[in-house]
Computed example of a mutant assay.
Amino acid sequence: MRGLIDLGFKGLEGLLVLLLAAMVVMVFGNVVLRYLFDTGIDVSEELSRFLFVWLTFIGAVVVARENAHLGVETLVTRLGAGGRKLCMVLSDVVIIACCAVFFWGTWQQAGINATNYAPITEISMLWIYGVGFFTSIGMGLMALARILRVVTGRIDEHELKAFAGEYGDDEAHALKERLE
Rank of each mutant, 00 (worst) to 15 (best):
V150Y: 06
G59P: 08
V63A: 12
R34A: 12
G11Q: 13
I128D: 04
R149T: 03
A21F: 05
S91I: 05
I5C: 11
G105L: 08
G80L: 03
V31K: 01
E166H: 15
V62H: 13
G138M: 08
N30Q: 02
G14L: 12
H158T: 15
L75E: 10
G3F: 04
M26R: 02
V151F: 04
L70T: 05
K176W: 08
A162E: 13
W104H: 10
I155P: 05
F103C: 09
T106L: 08
D92W: 09
K161Q: 07
I5L: 13
I120C: 00
L4G: 15
V25K: 08
T121C: 06
G105W: 07
R146A: 09
V72E: 13
F28N: 01
L19G: 08
D42N: 01
S91R: 11
F102E: 07
V101F: 09
V61Q: 12
V89D: 09
L47V: 07
S44K: 00
E171C: 04
G105Q: 14
V62G: 02
A100W: 04
H158M: 04
Y117E: 11
I155K: 07
F52L: 00
L148D: 01
F134H: 11
F37Y: 12
A110R: 01
W104P: 04
L175V: 07
G140T: 06
G140W: 12
L7Y: 07
T77P: 03
T74P: 10
G140C: 06
G59A: 08
K85L: 03
G14F: 04
A174P: 04
R49Q: 09
L33V: 09
E66K: 11
G168C: 05
I5R: 05
A100N: 14
A64W: 07
V27Y: 02
T56E: 13
T135K: 11
W54H: 03
P119R: 08
L86I: 00
V17K: 01
M125G: 11
T152I: 12
F57M: 10
V25F: 00
C87H: 09
G138N: 09
S124K: 15
I137K: 14
K10M: 13
K176M: 05
Y117V: 15
G140H: 09
Q109P: 00
R178L: 01
I5D: 13
M139L: 11
V63Y: 15
G3A: 14
F28V: 03
R146W: 07
K176L: 14
E45S: 02
C99F: 00
C99Y: 05
L20Q: 03
E73Y: 12
R84Y: 00
D170N: 09
A100H: 10
D156Q: 12
F102A: 09
L4D: 11
F52G: 03
V25C: 06
A143S: 15
G111P: 00
G168S: 15
E177N: 06
G130W: 08
I128A: 11
R178F: 01
F50N: 14
A118E: 03
E66N: 00
L75N: 12
R49P: 05
L160M: 15
F102S: 11
F133N: 13
A97T: 11
D92L: 12
C99P: 01
I147V: 04
E180S: 04
T77N: 06
Y35G: 14
S136R: 10
